[in-house]
Amino acid sequence: MKKKRAETLEDAVANVEDGATVLLGGFGGTSVPEFLIDGVCDRGLRELTIVSNNAGNGRTGLARMIEEGCVAKLICTFPWAKDSFVFKELYDAGKIELEIVPQGTLAERMRTAGAGLGGFLTQTAVGTDLAEGKQALTIDGKDYILELPLRADMALIKAYKVDPRGNLVYRKSARNFSPIMAMAADHTIVEVAEEVAIGDLDPEVIITPGVFVDRYFITGPYDLGRGKR
């Protein structure tokens, strides 16, 4: 059986390269893979394209990545939160590119990539600024735009429990984008609080099967729902 467990943080993120497109888990303060992000920052990587719902909060996580100059482009849904001041400063200075995508479209573009499809049609954003440059189609009298898959080199996500095959379960609303991102990347790296033995995860409740997981790093027990800080 392939060993998916990385013993060190450095080892876990060793495959992330300059210029990579990286799907980054996280919705607000939940499910942000802060250990993996710190690992990427410590490597001083450059020119990353980051896909994330938010544009970083405070000065940790994605905000640290942005502040340290790792990120050339951000693809996200909600960049202008009050605590995304690090992103705003670099954006205003013209130092980071931004692509805004509606949240459901962002999720479905990743799912489509993971499912090996060539795109999908959605009514979301029809007639809006965000439909500019996109192919329009009318089917059964309804207007749609064509959205293309969003595939990435890497996904960095956070989960609650893992077994040695890489099967994952998440916790409460900290699931959100993570299972989709795991599907949509060539290489998926997970930070996870707890490792259990094979057979200890109920197969009926595994959310992400290990086929979508390449590496995982155990962050160790921490207060549930508290994150790294």
Partner: peptide
Amino acid sequence: WRLPNQTSGSVGGAMDIAVG
């Protein structure tokens, strides 16, 4: 989702939810 004098806005899930 965006004011006319802004170059960008925070769309979040508003467009998907509103059409659906």
